[in-house]
């Protein structure tokens, strides 16, 4: 696992999901249904202006977790931030191949049996692959 902050280029599929990613000159295919969410950003510390009628990308940053392959090496995952409104992409976290976790369809096979003795939803596996909100950047 490593921490990065590098610009990349992303191409969309017809469905509006990232389909290909160019990093260090290599074109990777993105596995279907990458996970997408939004993280808050402290705009009141960062932005100098926020006049009415502006503000896309001020409150939150779009994050994609993609599984990449270039046909050769084993697939690996990374988190990419998409900064709006400028539309720039940056890699914010790279997972080593051995950081095994379920990505796409992670919830499919979730078993609804409760763990014995604890009121813990088996779906909490979700959290295993979710970084803490600050992880991946704090140490930079």
């Amino acid at each position: 696992m490593g921490i990065f902050s590098e610009a990349v280029d992303v191409m969309y599929s017809a469905q509006g999901e990232p389909a290909q990613l160019v990093w260090h000159g290599t074109v990777y295919d993105v596995a279907p249904h990458p996970l997408c969410w939004y993280e808050r950003r402290p705009w009141w510390e960062r932005d100098e202006r926020l006049p009415p009628g502006t503000g896309v990308g001020a409150v939150d940053t779009q994050i994609w977790r993609m599984v990449l392959s270039d046909g050769g090496a084993p697939p690996f995952s990374l988190d990419v931030a998409h900064y709006r409104p400028a539309g720039r992409w940056r890699v914010i976290k790279v997972y080593d191949a051995e950081d095994s976790f379920r990505t796409d369809g992670a919830l499919d096979g979730a078993d609804d049996d409760p763990l014995e003795g604890e009121d813990i939803d088996p779906l909490d596996g979700v959290d295993d692959f979710c970084p803490g909100p600050g992880e991946g950047l704090d140490g930079a």
Binding site: R41, E48, G57, P131, G134
Partner: peptide
């Protein structure tokens, strides 16, 4: 500040998701 919404420069990687506690931030 500029990368706040465009990510054009990220010299120290301080923007992006997850920086929430403004208290100790030099920014």
């Amino acid at each position: 500040d500029a990368f706040g919404t465009d990510g054009s420069e990220l010299p120290d990687g301080t923007d992006g998701p997850g920086i929430h506690d403004g208290g100790g931030l030099d920014g």
